[in-house]
Design a protein around this nucleic acid. Structure first.
Lengths: 337, 337
DNA sequence: AACAGATCTGGAAGCCCTTCCATTGTGGCG
DNA sequence: CGCCACAATGGAAGGGCTTCCAGATCTGTT
């Protein structure tokens, strides 16, 4: 009953021969196609089991002109980027959804020129049916693929300079707005913000959310400090903000790392959190639970992001139509506010 | 000069036709094979550039019987596993080394029965040239692949119950020994340990390292407490150890998470770290720098692990011989000791 | 100038599938 | 009882590439 010859590669012809049918019939059986009599179907199935046959996806791909795989492209300049737990979760989401669709996942890290070239080759060689692309910078050379090629490309996160046909994003504006409104609801009125790099859409959107909430509440948004999303940058920015606005009583940080830096700077300046100053972060990564006090932050559904990217891609590949998708965030209240 | 028809798929035949040669010659050119005159070689190269030709890896794979890809299989029961930053780094290492060898990477998350089945299919279908497998449990169904199939399988971390032909591992014994010796060198003599689950080789090896160091110093290893590598388990284990050995002055934790939990429990018990009790962790993940006090811990070169796994696999695929490889760890001294 | 030996060259046979199409077999219905 | 529609079947033509092999071309000798 079990497979017998795991070594020699078994072909469909052998299955057909053993089952006493033609290769066409055998093929129809493994593809669950109609026009096969019950008897032959069972006979073929038996032969498949007996020989431990597994179809060769390469040959199948060649014949059907469908690769049976999708690529997840992580395009960053920094090869260390994968250390960010963000990607682990993203990958998990993508993996799950691709599994549902029975597609394989090619993971491409485009951190070097060589890597980028390889991705381009991969895509142009039709080795995958579609691409999920996380491209941060606006001038990412791989973004070109989305315009040029006929291949469906789903973006993870809206690029800063253009609106791709298909993308999934987190509601950064809404999240930041909610975070800010949370501070205001707590009675804080002198709320400042620490932004991310303004050449990323993420940072811009979060800043926009802060501004919207402030304006809506009839308050004047204060000029932001900008950091590169690192803990150190958060501390530096916080220090500067304290100089510029000694009376501040709330901080909206564009991510948890910078929020953690801000906490450190505040402690250094003798301000107590949340009594003197309330701090809210963004991302809800592990770090948010490890700070002291634990960080109130905007949770973003990263895994869902991956899942929806993959699902959207699967849909587009299948010819279904789809538009951009924005996933909701929610505020996680901890001790820093 | 640049590609012109990115849409229609260009085949080698078209290249050959444009260059005025046979397909054989064109093939030799793209494979850098001998027996092609200088003139024709250039002519073909020009045609390739003009048409923007990219060979189809599927067809090539079919003809050469080489997939041009390797699979990284992450086999865990928990779909959340990828959240662990460990895997991000591992993936980064693998990606880099595969890039060097010009192999593509298929990432398989085998967390569900369905996922496992798909991995098995993938492997048996010869869609990849080799597999890198991170299998924790001894009875992992995918470990069978390594024995049965003809496909090279490189393990990441030695499985607990058998010695695979090819694997790369961290020197867990040595690392734990060094950690323990570090405590001893600091004058601690009543050193206890918090182990990981004993059905993992990692946990066993680290415990062995502790025992070796203790014995070597003429001390009697104390009976360990066991946890599941989580922060909470670390705290629980620490509490129990404090009851059993109120006089303890040093703790070797099997990982950083449990060490963090231990710190929390110690603080709760009114012991100060490192004055009363010195604590050392293992892994050197981000959490180690965020605890208070920052954790002295054993750094493991995860990225190197990934890189060496991929390199070993590439070597084996190329027919080179290779044996197990154990990567050295080193102690990172911070404030907890 | 002729010939061995090497270097090129292109035809054709695969690699393993899917799918179109023509052929044969079957049942229902007038 | 004969005819039509439709299901079932297998042959053959791909899909895009590599590679073997036989024949063509060229090199350098004597």
């Amino acid at each position: 009953m079990a497979e017998e010859l795991p070594h020699r590669h078994v072909t469909l012809d052998e299955v057909a021969a053993l089952a006493g049918v033609s290769r066409s019939v055998a093929s129809r059986v493994i593809n669950n196609a109609p026009h096969v009599s019950r008897a032959k179907r069972e006979s073929v199935e038996k032969a498949i089991r007996k020989l431990g046959y597994v179809p060769d996806p390469k040959a199948r791909a060649l014949a059907t002109r469908q690769a049976g795989a999708a690529a997840l492209v992580i395009s960053r300049d920094d090869p260390e980027v994968l250390t960010d737990p963000f990607f682990g979760q993203l990958i998990a989401g993508v993996a799950g959804a691709l599994e549902e669709a029975d597609l394989h996942m090619m993971l491409c890290v485009a951190a070097t020129p060589r890597g980028r070239e390889r991705v381009e080759q991969l895509v142009r060689s039709r080795a995958v049916d579609g691409v999920m692309l996380t491209a941060s910078h606006e001038d990412d050379p791989l973004a070109r693929i989305a315009k040029e090629g006929p291949l469906p490309v789903v973006f993870g996160g809206r690029p800063v300079d253009f609106e791709p046909r298909w993308y999934v994003d987190i509601d950064n504006v809404g999240g930041a707005r909610e975070a800010t409104e949370h501070l205001l609801a707590r009675g804080r009125t002198r709320v400042v913000t620490i932004c991310g790099p303004q050449d990323t859409e993420v940072a811009r959107s979060r800043y926009r959310g802060y501004r919207e909430a402030m304006t809506l509440a009839g308050l004047t948004p204060r000029p932001p400090e900008t950091g590169d999303f690192s803990e150190a940058a958060g501390a530096t920015a916080m220090t500067r903000l304290l100089e510029a606005h000694p009376d501040l009583d709330g901080v909206v940080a564009a991510n948890d790392n910078m929020a953690a830096g801000a906490l450190r700077a505040l402690r250094g300046a003798g301000r107590s959190v949340p009594a003197d100053v309330a701090v809210v972060g963004f991302d809800d990564l592990a770090v948010a639970q490890l700070t002291d006090p634990a960080l109130t932050t905007v949770h973003q559904p990263i895994r869902d992001l991956g899942r929806e990217m993959a699902r959207m891609l699967v849909g587009v590949v299948a010819g279904r139509t789809a538009g951009p998708l924005i996933l909701p965030t929610h505020l996680v209240k901890r001790s820093s506010t």
